[in-house]
């Protein structure tokens, strides 16, 4: 049961959240022009690092807002959380 730092509500139990994979993957602007390969990257490919990972969560059973947070996938330690469109803080690594 992770304790996830929602930037609006503070730390809450994992069961209040849903996971959203890698943070900051932008919806391609020029969708009609990009190759199938690049489009596939957006649709299916997300970072999967062993170590610090900038990822998205949504506080579904709380404020229902999305946010981003650094988390270490080796030991589940959390780094800084940040709101959507806020600049990404440096990796704690």
């Amino acid at each position: 049961m992770l304790n996830i730092p929602c930037p609006w509500c503070g730390p809450r139990d994992e069961t209040e959240f849903h996971y959203g994979q890698e943070a900051g993957v932008a919806y391609p602007e020029n969708r009609d022009e990009i190759s199938d390969e690049l489009w596939a990257k957006f649709v299916f490919y997300r970072a999967n690092p062993k170590g610090w990972h900038a990822e998205r969560w949504v506080h579904s059973a709380g404020c229902r807002r999305w946010f981003n947070v650094w988390r270490n996938t080796i030991n589940h330690e959390f780094g800084e959380s940040y709101k959507p469109f806020e600049p990404q803080p440096k990796s704690p690594a």
């Binding site: 849903h18 959203g20 932008a26 919806y27 998205r56 949504v58 579904s60 229902r64 807002r65 999305w66 959507p84 469109f85």
Partner: peptide, 13 residues
């Protein structure tokens, strides 16, 4: 609902 809010929050603020 999750889907709608995800787009609103993360892509189309």
């Amino acid at each position: 609902l999750d889907w709608l809010e995800e787009w609103l929050y993360t892509e189309w603020p």
